[in-house]
Design a protein around this nucleic acid. Structure first.
Lengths: 396, 396
DNA sequence: CAACTTTCTCCACTCACAGGACAAAGAAGG
DNA sequence: CCTTCTTTGTCCTGTGAGTGGAGAAAGTTG
């Protein structure tokens, strides 16, 4: 079938498309209340959008005491693909134009296998979603990668944990393979956009979104827009100094936050503790699985294991210290904690909160919520869909 | 005489006023090149501006191979007042509409005397500038205060070093006293705006401006706009943890950056060193003046005093460590170092650079200039003038 | 003095948009 | 069933913003 070819012709149409995306179906009258246009002008633009096929009128809404209104909604066959490439797994999801997830697949993977192998897997996952009847094709795709991206070109730059990806034309390659427009961003930025669109950060203008997974990153939203920095590396807080003369880090320095707390560091510390006989719980898990991950630590902590709790608390303190500095600097209205390690839950959050509330300025922390992300593993793919829809729902 | 009463009627006029402010006098044709308008429309808007008196046509420019152009410039009698309130002194300056400084006064003062006493002094300084014939009145004033400000209302909030100023209606009071529109901001933000307008940060979209004076603060510019944060305390980096379990700070915590390096901390450390007999140079200065300030340390360092140099280097290292974290987080295109302590010059800058280049990500530091501010003590007042002119040169 | 440039003005035409009149469609009440 | 009121959507005209071309004004160059 024919995919979305048209783009909004002007800012009004773009505005209307975003309103329909974020607010669901609406009558012309309801749209008129939210947009600063006369009824006549609005009708013209809606008609033009109907002509392009980007929106459709389906059926009449219930009467609100007068003539029944026509429901205007985004074309129901529109499909966006959201791809979230992590260090060790891939998430792929299909959404409709309202960015609701219609299907979602997660598969293990190793980014270090390089872009070619990873893309093959992404394409097969996308094909599987298509085959299940959720989409006949994609009108656009957003993709997040775990490293800095030159945003305008959609190309990763100098990604530390992604050897082989440096300079790979992700946007162009994926766009060719999928046959639709593609936008690329850092995975952390997409998580922030996801939480902004459908999660805890709705209606917050300035916020930070800290993602603790294999590494640590931070999405920065200023005035509703993601801040990517001069070279696309903004938010790369994993290598901020957390412990003077601390542990050696892969980056060559010592005491980086990531060397002291992250999925990888936690797994290593848990293994050490198990081998030193500090925790029977962890030791038995190590013996069973042959290795330990953050999930094991979470489980041990949930079971009340003191060592596991200590590790989490210690890591939360480190992370909280760094976040405290960022809060003083940036003065956000909200801090969201997300990523794989959020399984550590309340213990982690409490440690982070303690540090931030203790160390940052009262003025900056007085009304500052520090909360877990609401969307879990879907934040990234929703953010990815949002990224491409923002692009497509803007004037051509 | 009658002051500026008119405001630009639309975005085009505002754009033109800012072009004339930043680019100096221009012909209609030159303006047409910089603004996306047809010659006819441009002529209409320029004519309207001429009618309001905001701009004037004075004389003909030299020919560029054809008919000579009329020079269009901002009304020459327009005057802005820039006020920069520091912890220990006040700077007041008059500028023309192009934000060129026509007169500048600096006087010692203590913010802790409270807003009433300080305003009295500001008004007498403004009167002195008027009396010298530089201005017959002011069309607008910008004022910077050394603490967080609720920007929309122009009111300081919970300023640690300014007891008595909390909630004082600075904007309203000064506006009444001066009889012109007033805008209030944090002094550090104004310094950033000053360097952006006329200093080293011209044409840089994202940059940080670290001001080291009595305290330490940081102006944050994102996409050309100052980021003030949710409660107006963004950039308050003086209380970021620099030394775990370090020196007690006035804020109640330990190890804050400001407790280890700032004008106040440097003076204290220098005094300690002098009294412990570590430096003859500093000791003799202490005896002569009865006290020591950052200026003494700068002079001693310039004279080759090893203790003074050590103090500066140590402070620069601490500051550099904190800035390194901010650079990783924010990924700016430029870092400007300014404030009273810049008299410490190259030694300080070298220490900061070393830490940042060593600790931040290569991607973030590869093309990152770290430089001293270009405007010195005038950055604040220029920024203040810029603040109010941005306000006045925007659609009413 | 002729030919060419640059600057500025004038005018007619287009298009975006507002807002009123009105038609369509339903609810509420007698 | 009919009248009245409300809500929704359409049509039409007037206004003002903006474009682009023609041409006048005022230079330079050879």
């Amino acid at each position: 079938m024919r995919r979305m070819t048209a783009r909004p012709a002007n800012a009004h149409q773009a505005r209307l498309l975003r309103l329909l995306r974020d607010g669901g179906p609406n009558s012309r009258a309801q749209l008129g209340d939210r947009v600063d246009l006369s009824r006549s002008k609005l009708a013209v633009e809606v008609d033009r959008l109907l002509e392009t096929g980007l929106v459709v009128a389906d059926g009449l809404a219930a009467s609100r005491g007068g003539r029944r209104s026509h429901n205007i909604r985004l074309a129901p066959q529109l499909r966006f693909l959201g791809v979230d490439i992590g260090a060790t797994s891939i998430d792929v999801a299909v959404t409709n134009a309202e960015l609701e997830i219609l299907g979602h697949i997660n598969q293990p993977m190793d980014v270090r296998d390089g872009p070619v192998a990873v893309f093959e897997q992404v394409l097969s996952m996308a094909a599987k979603l298509k085959a299940s009847g959720l989409a006949e094709g994609f009108d656009g795709a957003g993709i997040g990668v775990p490293g800095p991206v030159r945003f305008p070109e959609g190309v990763p730059v100098a990604p530390p944990i992604m050897p082989g990806w440096d300079g790979f034309p992700v946007r162009e390659a994926l766009s060719q393979d999928l046959g639709c427009p593609v936008m690329v961003d850092n995975d952390v930025n997409l998580m922030a956009m996801g939480e902004q669109h459908a999660g805890v950060a709705r209606s917050v203008g300035d916020f930070l979104c800290v993602k603790i997974g294999t590494g640590i990153g931070c999405g920065i939203v200023v005035g509703g827009e993601v801040h990517r920095g001069t070279t696309g590396s903004a938010g790369d807080i994993g290598h901020i100094l957390a412990v003077p003369d601390g542990r050696p880090c892969a980056c060559g320095n010592r005491g980086c936050l990531e060397a002291h707390f992250s999925g990888a560091a936690l797994a290593r510390d848990a293994k050490d503790a198990a081998q030193q006989g500090l925790s029977a719980e962890l030791a038995s898990r190590l013996e069973t699985n042959g290795t330990l991950t953050a999930v094991d630590v979470a489980a041990a902590a949930a079971a009340g294991d003191a060592t596991a709790l200590d590790l989490i608390r210690e890591g939360g303190n480190r992370t909280g210290q760094v976040i405290a500095g960022l809060v003083s600097f940036f003065n956000p209205g909200l801090v969201v904690i997300g990523g794989g390690v959020t399984g550590l839950g309340h213990t982690l959050l409490a440690a982070i909160r303690t540090q931030v509330y203790r160390q940052s300025l009262p003025l900056a922390t007085n009304n500052l919520p520090i909360v877990l992300g609401e969307l879990g593993p879907t934040a990234g793919v929703i953010g990815a869909a949002r990224l491409i829809s923002d692009h497509l729902f803007s004037p051509a």
